[in-house]
Amino acid sequence: MEKAAKPWRYDNRIPSQPDYCANVISLILEQLEKSSWSNKDTFGIHMAMEEAIMNAIHHGNHCAPDKDVHVLVELFDDRFYSKITDQGCGFDPDALPDPTAEENLEKDCGRGVMLIMNFVDVVVYNAKGNSIEITKRRSDVPSNNHVEADR
């Protein structure tokens, strides 16, 4: 049986500053391009990672200089996986107001989380609500070749 290729891996703690988010995103986009991921998949991963890391920096850690964000990324042949954890007190994603409701359209609350859920395949929060796991399957890989992505 052919051995699966080792995934590209990024595992780092970044300070709670937006510039560091941009650096991580650049590295991820570079790897996706090297691996010839489609523009559509790349856009979805970019959107989800941008929103998840910025949420962790702003809403989780409140940009506190003594708090960091743990970003783990694994890029497999057929899927993208990431786990992002902040040092905040967490939140309940189910308690967010519906950002698509007419009365909430003008509010800046819950839109980022909704975008993450729409642009990737699997989103899992831990019980505390300070850690999010994201999985996006590569769309140009036949579905029967996908490894079970729900880890």
Partner: peptide, 16 residues
């Protein structure tokens, strides 16, 4: 672009 258009439809902002 279609992906950017999706941003507005997923969030219902295409009604605004």
């Amino acid at each position: 672009r279609p992906e950017v258009r999706d941003l507005f439809s997923y969030t219902n902002l295409d009604s605004m």
